[in-house]
Amino acid sequence: MLELKLVKESLFLNVLEAILDLVAVASVSCSSTGLKLQAMDAKGVAFISLLIPAKEFQFYHCDKDLSMGIAIGDMVEAIRSADKDGTITIKASDENFRNITVSIESPECNETTSFSLLLVTLKRFCIPELQGLLKKYDACVQMPSVDFMRICKYLSNVDGDVDISTIDKGIRFFALGKCGCLNVKYMQPEKATDIDISVQAPVSLTLDLKYMNSFAKVSALSNQVKLCLSKGQPLVVQCKIGQKTKSRIIYLLAPKIKG
């Protein structure tokens, strides 16, 4: 049986809100140590992996490992109308493993609303161990998420693709659209400690800007973001979420190649 309790303004729900423009259904695995969510967008281009340890929830109990397909879009929609100080309880039982129950309790505890959401069947993807994947990359850029968001905002003025390339002591973002082009050079400063650009080998990736903007939305929940690039491989965007937590989110984005 799984039971977890959280307040509406919680990290988990804020992250779910932020990823909904990419995915509406997700594979959620729960164990005694925490919750892992994995989801692929409908086009099979972007993958999201979210890890939230048990202690991040107001209450968390899972006595048996569970894996379920959840329509997170429907779940978030059900929770949206709850009062901001309301308490949300999510339950899944072994006896009836066809749905989950989402209960919303008002702050005064005088009103309880329960939703029963049917579980969905999902294709599961075998993604290699992500930490190992990060070590193999040609270039990594650790940067404040505000910088990443600002660059994505600049890029969103140009409708099209973005080329991310390594340059001497830095990285370059280049977007070419119908109305013109945009070029951002992001260099390793001499003194800043929150920027770390490491290049093992030159690399250039072309990516769909629409996905980059979705990634920027989640990075708003984190102070730092890490981009890892390797020739001909998916871009990896990694964020630790919140302060003093071990929660993290990882995105993979398939590149565009010469047609």
Binding site: G44, K123, C126, A254, P255
Partner: peptide
């Protein structure tokens, strides 16, 4: 022109 790849080209499906 550029062609969008899919993640399934990099990772296997279960």
């Amino acid at each position: 022109s550029r062609k969008q790849t899919k993640l399934s080209a990099f990772f296997s499906e279960k």
